[in-house]
Design a protein around this nucleic acid. Structure first.
Lengths: 251, 251
DNA sequence: TCCACCTTTCTTGTATACAGTCTGAACCCA
DNA sequence: TGGGTTCAGACTGTATACAAGAAAGGTGGA
């Protein structure tokens, strides 16, 4: 109850949403498990009105699923769902890249993207690469993708990408690795950085189709990468998201 | 979708959502106009709790936009936004078609799609085509697209398509025409039906890339079609959705 | 012993009251 | 006359009470 004095800057709704999302992603609420409003009230400590709003928003994010008879359940994803979401994201980002190329970007507007590219280069060129560098890469990679999507100049497209990206496993940033997997992961990173370079080049040269194709290939790399991770459990930061996977026992 | 019947079977939330959506699409709430919860309460006649939920859901649909200082405003779309949404939809449906082709559909599962195709054929082959046939086409076309998306077998993809399709102007079904525009529109329909035929054929023959390409082309046709409509105001059933367009005066 | 019906309880849907905050206008002072 | 301060009004965020509906379990009758 002492913890209730936390952080008055956030609204109760947002706080509830954060708390519930954390419970889901951390696996304390397991995939397929039902959650009632009153349970959520107990968990979050806020009253039903904001809790209900938080639940609706989480349903919207794709983490929860409304049950016809009332209430919500934690959504369960199959491995195929996850791979599909990654391909989906790649397709949308491909569209964004093509728009960026076709609509013509000014030298000024592409500048932040090129800076970000250079920053990533510095990280990636370390050999051997450190675990910390990988963490930094995750952040920079997310930034790169965000900048790229902005460059499309299309609100509907950006909106749609944000929706897919809300699914934690759909984000191609799962690159915090176990030490043992570092060399292999480094190889993948180098390829990914190649993709980044090519897409920037394609956008600069107004080659829409090429920009799109490479972003799709980029997603396919991420999918391959994830498939590997699912086998080997080598991607440390993916583990939370993996709790959303339906376990074999659940079927 | 639902009739304007005051139906006890509907929840207050859904009723409010329907009423507000109708107000937006009919133009009684103009693009850019602010709407407070209390206004919404007055309009719909239900109390604040369900009204608030309805507003959140409409924001989610993309019809409303939250204002930082509180409340919502009717979202305003530029012509480019609309064309982007159509291209977005085509891209997603292209992905769905490719999935359908690549994952292999059984003869049984593709049967409803082929039936729908044949039904459309019957309509389209009329010459000259009637206004009623056009209306029937709108329904069947929507059904065709829905069946196609289902055939992808991918929940994430279907979910994403539903989101774009919620924007009324993004749906490639705007084919109710003024009498004078019928001949020109008929031509477009014939091309569209060609696309339909090709995509079914491609799926049957496991040609993923071809299926995807033709769905994209299909969207480009819809975009051309809409651009024409925006110039000529010939698409009668688009007019409600057009109220969402920012008028020149608003800028 | 089994089935059906009733009752109890849990849960959501809805309404409303209360409080905090933001905005805008008016008034006062320099 | 202009700027700043204060007050009032409105609006949202939040909590809670109440009612209706559904599910589950128990009891009585066949």
């Amino acid at each position: 109850m002492n913890e209730k004095v936390v952080d008055r800057s956030m609204s109760q709704t947002v706080r509830a949403q954060l708390a519930l999302r954390d419970m889901v992603l951390s696996g304390r609420l397991r995939a397929g498990e039902r959650i009632s409003e009153l349970q959520a009230v107990e968990i979050t400590g806020v009253s039903r009105t904001p809790v209900r709003l938080a639940l609706v928003r989480l349903e919207d994010e794709g983490l929860l699923q409304a049950i016809p008879s009332g209430g919500f359940m934690v959504k369960a994803f199959s491995e195929r769902d996850i791979l599909d979401a990654i391909e989906l994201r790649g397709t949308l980002e491909g569209l964004a890249a093509r728009f960026a190329a076709e609509r013509g970007v000014t030298a000024r507007s592409i500048e932040p993207l090129k800076e970000c590219l250079a920053d990533i280069d510095q990280l990636v060129q370390q050999d051997p690469i450190s675990v910390e560098a990988f963490s930094a890469y995750v952040t920079l990679n997310a930034r790169f993708h965000a900048l790229l999507n902005e460059l499309s100049g299309s609100a509907p497209v950006m909106r749609q990408i944000d929706r897919v990206a809300a699914l934690p496993f759909a984000s191609p940033s799962g690159f915090v690795m176990a030490q043992s997997a570092l060399p292999e992961a480094h190889q993948i990173l180098l390829i990914a950085q190649d993709h980044h370079r090519i897409v920037v080049d394609a956008i600069e040269n107004r080659e829409g189709a090429r920009a799109e194709a490479v972003m799709r290939e980029h997603a396919r790399l991420a999918a391959r990468n994830l498939r590997l991770a699912l086998r080997n459990r080598t991607h440390l930061d993916l583990l939370p998201a993996l709790t959303l996977l339906t376990s074999a026992a659940d079927r």
